[in-house]
Amino acid sequence: MTRRILIIDDEEDIRQVAGLSLETVAGWEVVLANSGKQGMERAEQEHPDAILLDVMMPAMDGPTTFLQLQKNPKTAKIPVILLTAKVQGSDQRRFAELGVAGILFKPFDPLTLSTQVSQTLGWTQIH
């Protein structure tokens, strides 16, 4: 089954690399958004199966975006995984208490990114 993943990150390069990784390695469909605001729009429109959400973004940061997504009934059910370079313990605990589905760290291994996403969300892999 092909999954559709929405990647929200303000860094162009990372969007590309991550997107390419998921597409080439897992064959998933990828939707990109460059900000929290755009991400929310895309989420509403595209109904992704999961969202990879960057934390450090100007304007609306990851956690705020997440909370907004939760508030919107159309997007509240979409599982969100934080993809972040903020790896410190204190940061981690803070994110965990938000209630996101999981946290993955940057830099990631492009070959295993999709596997990690699947594991986190409890998807069985078929590829």
Partner: peptide, 23 residues
Amino acid sequence: STVSHELRTPLTSIRGSLGLLST
């Protein structure tokens, strides 16, 4: 945290690109 983040972010792109290429 910021320093770590700032260092890791470009590395992500590097690592990702190279990794993909090498496959």
